[in-house]
Design a binder for these strands. Structure first.
Length: 476
RNA sequence: GGCGCGGUACCCAAGCGGCUAAGGGAGAGGUCUGCAAAACCUUUAUUCGUCGGUUCGAGUCCGACCCGCGCCUCCA
């Protein structure tokens, strides 16, 4: 049984899709006024884990992620550079796709942009329906949603509007509304802003309406899962529910999953504090993308991650424990009959891994199952009792869950163009060192080993000869 | 003020009513090794922020309190 924490109920619930075997998933994507930061990736990697797990369990997942390319920030940014919205947002969209691939997140099936194709028309249709039904009203060319017409407003965020602290609302809009809590569906034209001529008049969409329109376009009026960061619960997702359910008269989303924030060195990431990181900043420190992904993945999605250099280092050593086993297994050549204990250990790990993730994506439990396999297999290896066949079974199992779910264990960086010359150079060094060792010239042998280490090559002297691997790529 | 999250070993982190409190890192001792690396074995919380309560039995449920944090305005 798969269970997820549903923000709507505040509880962990059994997951039952609308249509057996299929999951319709919508995740709030980037607002492309700037490059994505590592906190954004926490959310997208959580969503990737969710999607991969559902596919792992055999569901056919349709995933839609919107790209917000028209809002206050993109308009302002484009205006400041004297560019069109499209030209202004393009590099950020491209960076988002590029980083997604670097972090090995699966692409969504659709990435609708708000300004693209008929999307604005879709939004207008909902707004029109809301006006017809009396949920929305016009004011000075703008259209607002009247939240007092929608009694269940606040159900998702558990916000009682009467309790909201007076004076803290800091209305950023320059528009007049009947009630301060009402939100804009459609914004009247302003100088220097893009304008769409539509049935409800000229203007541009409010922020929330795009998700209502674009989710329904691909997933239907009611769909299974909607994700985002906790900060989206209010007002964004609350407003989406109000708009969609008022307009359509049916439930909008069955399961709302929200991930917690990532903080850096114990503090919220912000540009003014100077603790604002992009993926490229982390990679520049010498960490591999897979190590970053492992860290983002290895903390439960509803728990805050404290992103620190130490956490990154721990993610690396932790991940290396698994990779060291795979390295070891690839060198096993003995032919021994398969040990029943190994097959048993693999099955235990497979079951533990799956049941951990089934329980609201309990990644700690899933990884613990994997690490228990690592230890038990290492034990057999250290006794020299593991044969080639068993080794391959373990490799296949790890490759399988990595390929389908974790996506950060077995994939190696592409070999550099000069891989062959590197290989030859290392072989030559090892040979020289072996001669030195044979002549008990350990000082010379250690020198060579140190030289290789500085080049990022780790040597291991084993009974069956010397072997080498690339070290972690961090500078220290 | 309202809503919500968290406080489990040196660090990260599961467990959420009942066998000896998962797992990873780090530390200590041992094995292997010329020395390393990797790995294995042993070891590191009579105790789960504090104080009460419920219970035959509580990190696990209830209440109060202390500490840290997020949201309530754009934000993953």
């Amino acid at each position: 049984m798969i269970r997820f924490h549903n923000t709507l109920s505040g509880k962990v619930e059994e997951f039952v899709p609308i249509e057996p075997g299929r999951v319709k998933l919508y995740t709030c994507g980037p607002t492309v006024y700037d490059y994505p930061h590592i906190g954004n990736w926490r959310a997208y990697i959580f969503e990737d884990l969710l999607k991969r797990f559902l596919r792992f369990r055999g569901f056919d997942v349709t995933h839609v992620m919107n790209i917000t390319d028209v809002d206050d920030k993109t308009i302002k940014g484009a205006a400041a550079k004297g560019m069109s919205l499209e030209d202004y947002t393009r590099p950020y969209i491209e960076a988002f796709y590029a980083e997604r691939d670097i972090l090995n997140a699966l692409p969504a099936d659709h990435y609708p942009r708000a300004t693209e194709g008929d999307n604005i028309q879709g939004m207008v249709a909902i707004i029109k329906s809301l006006l017809d039904k009396g949920y929305a009203y016009r004011k000075d060319g703008s259209v607002y949603f009247a939240i007092d017409k929608f009694p269940s407003y606040g159900r998702l965020s558990k916000i009682n509007l009467e309790d909201r602290r007076p004076g803290s609302r800091g209305d950023a809009d320059d528009y007049e509304k009947d009630s301060v809590h009402d939100f804009a569906l459609w914004k009247a034209p302003k100088k220097g802003e893009p304008v769409w001529e539509t049935e409800i008049g000229p203007g541009r969409p409010g922020w929330h309406i795009e998700c209502s329109a674009m989710s329904s376009r691909f997933l239907g009026l009611t769909f299974d899962i909607h994700c985002g960061g906790v900060d989206n619960i209010f007002p964004h997702h609350e407003n989406e529910i109000a708009q969609s359910e008022a307009a359509n008269g049916v439930k909008f989303v069955n399961y709302w999953l929200h991930c917690h924030h990532l903080i850096v060195d114990g503090e919220k990431m912000s540009k003014s504090k100077g603790n604002f990181y992009r993926l490229s900043d982390i990679l520049a420190k010498g960490y591999a993308p897979e190590e970053v992904r492992f860290l983002l993945l290895s903390t439960h999605y509803r728990k805050m991650i404290n992103f620190t250099e130490e956490a990154l280092a721990q993610a690396r050593t932790s991940r290396n424990r698994i990779r060291n086993l795979l390295f070891e297994l690839r060198h096993i050549e003995r032919d021994l009959p398969p040990a029943p204990a190994v097959a048993q250990a693999i099955e235990t790990a497979r079951a533990g891994f799956a049941s951990g993730l089934e329980d609201d994506l309990n990644i700690s439990e899933a990884l613990a199952a994997l690490f228990e396999l690592v230890r038990s297999v290492n034990t057999v290896v250290s006794r020299g009792e593991l044969g080639r066949e068993d080794a391959q079974s373990v490799i296949d199992f790890v490759a399988d869950i990595d390929d389908k779910v974790l996506a950060c264990l077995t994939r190696d960086a592409p070999a550099p163009a000069d891989a062959d010359t590197l290989e030859a150079w290392v072989r030559e060094k090892i040979e020289t060192r072996q001669k030195a060792r044979a002549g008990k010239d350990f000082r010379r042998a250690d020198e060579i080993r140190r030289e290789l280490l500085e080049a990022g090559i780790v040597l291991e002297d084993t009974k069956d000869g010397v072997r080498w691997k690339k070290a972690g790529t961090a500078k220290s």
